[in-house]
Amino acid sequence: MQLVVPTLAHLDAYADALSRGWSPDNVRLEAAAREELALIAADPAAFVARLDDREARGGPITLPDGFQVPRLPGFRRWIWDGAFCGSINFRWQPGTEALPPHCLGHIGYAVVPWKRGRGYATQALALLLPDARREGLAYVELTTDPDNLPSQKVITANGGHLVARFRKDPAYGDQEGLLFRIPLA
């Protein structure tokens, strides 16, 4: 298993996963998948290019409640084992570990259902952490729902520890969440 930079050569496999009901967005699910399929259909090269946006030039992000917020610098990598397995993304604010209240962590990941249970999320997170170090961060934060035990195991397997229980921003339904931190030093 490896992380690959999204390319046109891998785009058909990504679009196929979206068409089969998978979504890279664990909150907006089907809506996000439909939006990405529409962007791919409109301009495949532009879609791939926008997945690596280290200067946050891509315009605002739409939250689940429809409100738009400024984009953070970030990038997405695809999890690949000879076929598409999922995606992992990393976002940050230059010069600080702090994130805006509407941002549910530095890193998010989603594995396609037909590849779950193989340790791919754990491996993908481990492979992404050096990139966070290179951005100068002392730690990354990740959030998960209290009942999402598989994701909690992914985080703790990579050195994460529970920092707090919290209420998610109202844009995410004001639900309870768990905040984990992975030290990078």
Rank of each mutant, 00 (worst) to 15 (best):
56 A>W: 00
56 A>S: 13
56 A>G: 14
56 A>D: 03
56 A>N: 08
56 A>R: 04
56 A>P: 02
57 R>P: 07
57 R>W: 03
57 R>A: 15
58 G>V: 09
58 G>H: 05
58 G>M: 06
58 G>Q: 08
59 G>W: 01
59 G>Q: 11
60 P>W: 04
60 P>D: 15
60 P>K: 14
60 P>A: 15
61 I>N: 11
61 I>E: 14
61 I>K: 13
62 T>A: 10
62 T>D: 12
63 L>K: 11
63 L>H: 08
64 P>F: 03
65 D>K: 08
65 D>R: 08
65 D>H: 05
65 D>W: 03
66 G>E: 13
66 G>L: 14
66 G>N: 14
66 G>T: 11
66 G>W: 09
67 F>Y: 13
67 F>H: 15
67 F>V: 12
67 F>T: 14
67 F>Q: 15
67 F>S: 14
67 F>K: 15
67 F>D: 10
68 Q>E: 15
68 Q>V: 13
68 Q>H: 07
68 Q>Y: 02
68 Q>K: 15
69 V>G: 10
69 V>C: 09
70 P>F: 00
71 R>Q: 04
71 R>H: 01
71 R>Y: 00
71 R>G: 01
71 R>K: 03
71 R>E: 04
72 L>A: 10
72 L>H: 03
72 L>F: 04
72 L>M: 07
72 L>I: 10
73 P>R: 02
73 P>D: 05
73 P>K: 00
74 G>I: 02
74 G>Q: 04
74 G>N: 00
74 G>V: 03
75 F>P: 01
75 F>I: 02
76 R>N: 09
76 R>V: 15
76 R>K: 12
76 R>I: 11
77 R>I: 05
77 R>Q: 07
77 R>F: 02
78 W>E: 00
78 W>F: 00
78 W>I: 01
78 W>V: 00
79 I>T: 12
79 I>L: 09
80 W>Y: 05
80 W>V: 08
80 W>N: 09
80 W>C: 11
80 W>E: 03
80 W>A: 11
80 W>T: 11
81 D>C: 13
81 D>Q: 12
82 G>T: 02
82 G>F: 00
82 G>L: 03
83 A>S: 14
83 A>T: 13
83 A>H: 09
83 A>M: 05
83 A>D: 11
84 F>A: 12
84 F>Y: 12
84 F>N: 07
84 F>T: 11
85 C>E: 06
86 G>A: 11
86 G>M: 07
87 S>Q: 11
87 S>T: 13
88 I>F: 00
88 I>P: 01
88 I>V: 03
88 I>T: 04
89 N>V: 05
89 N>D: 14
89 N>C: 08
90 F>M: 05
91 R>T: 08
91 R>P: 04
91 R>M: 04
91 R>N: 06
91 R>E: 02
91 R>V: 10
91 R>W: 04
92 W>H: 04
92 W>P: 04
92 W>L: 01
92 W>V: 03
93 Q>G: 12
93 Q>N: 09
93 Q>D: 07
93 Q>F: 05
93 Q>Y: 06
